[in-house]
């Protein structure tokens, strides 16, 4: 559990960091919170020659609402999301995601940008960002661009980020009055990755009909995924128990879990059904004005 030798560089500006990325290419790794990178290095699963420590770059830790969009700086710590009144009251799904990531010690260091850039299908934020239709703003040598969460996760631990790009900001559209959202995670013990988790963000109109739904699933596929069949089973339907059960079964069918020490495939599939049913029910209740 001792890392291989590496160089540590600590740029003080974004441009400097991007220069360093461009110069070192695949030999370099960005160190933000370090809560995934450092364990990987200690196990020698990752042996970067250069670690670019971006903690000294000012202006990347912030969180505010502006023109109907929640903007979160990439270096914002999970603990800041957990403690933010804006998040807690306006974005319950994000609050529920942040507070179940690992444990308090990790959340004090871990960043939302690092969580997304690492693109571990077991990480909690990807499913939530898919459900929230978030935009990830990145910068490289050729400037800034926006990537939709739907396009961001491209494969197993891989993203649409170019080698010389760095995550700047996460943008989340503000919910409407008819929005209900939640993140429901089931883990073996606190601090563990999810056996499965479900992120739900939907809208229910005055007649009780679900008018929009986005559902993300955690750790039941190689790539963070949307449960599109489950969404389709809900949208345009009255949000009854049987519609919710139908959507939950669809999510169970479309996920693609692997067996591991968290459980066999059939267990994980059934767990997705159970969690999706509970999460959708809670989101519907919230959309209809429940405080829970």
């Amino acid at each position: 559990m001792i890392p291989a030798a590496f160089d540590h560089v600590a740029p003080t500006s974004l441009d400097e960091a991007i220069d360093l990325l461009a110069r070192h290419g695949p030999d370099a790794k960005i160190l933000s919170g370090g809560m995934s990178l450092i364990p990987a290095m200690k196990l020698r699963l990752a042996q970067p020659a250069v670690v670019i420590d971006v903690n000294g770059i000012p202006g990347l830790e912030y969180l505010h609402e502006e023109d109907g969009v929640l903007r979160i700086g990439a270096m914002t710590r999970e603990s800041a999301l957990e403690r933010s009144g804006i998040v807690r009251h306006g974005y319950p799904i994000l609050y529920e995601t942040a507070k179940v990531i690992a444990d308090p010690l990790v959340r004090n260091r871990a960043t939302i940008g690092g969580n997304l850039a690492h693109a571990d299908p077991a990480n909690d934020h990807p499913a939530t960002m898919l459900a929230l239709a978030a935009t990830i703003v990145v910068r490289g040598p050729h400037g800034t661009r926006e990537i939709a969460a739907d396009d961001f996760f491209t494969g197993f631990f891989s993203t649409a980020l170019a080698e010389d790009e760095i995550v700047l900001e996460i943008r989340i559209p503000a919910p409407s009055a008819t929005t209900g959202s939640t993140y429901l995670k089931f883990e073996r013990k606190v601090g563990d990755y999810a056996i499965a988790a479900v992120a739900v963000n939907l809208q229910v109109d005055a007649s009780g009909t679900c008018t929009a739904a986005r559902i993300g699933l955690t750790n039941v596929s190689d790539v963070p995924m949307r449960a599109r069949a489950a969404e389709a089973a809900l949208v345009g339907q009255r949000a009854t128990a049987s519609a919710i059960e139908g959507a939950a079964r669809a999510a169970s069918a479309e996920c693609d879990p692997k067996a591991d020490l968290r459980g066999p495939v059939d267990y994980k599939r059934d767990l997705v059904r159970v969690l999706a049913g509970r999460a959708i029910s809670r989101a519907v209740a919230r959309a209809q004005g429940s405080a829970n």
């Binding site: 056996i195 968290r262 459980g263 066999p264 267990y267 059934d270 159970v274």
Partner: peptide, 17 residues
Amino acid sequence: MTPARIWKVLRDHGVEG
């Protein structure tokens, strides 16, 4: 008695959830 083990016991004995 992990969740996965208990789940299997439940389903093997006809308990649905």
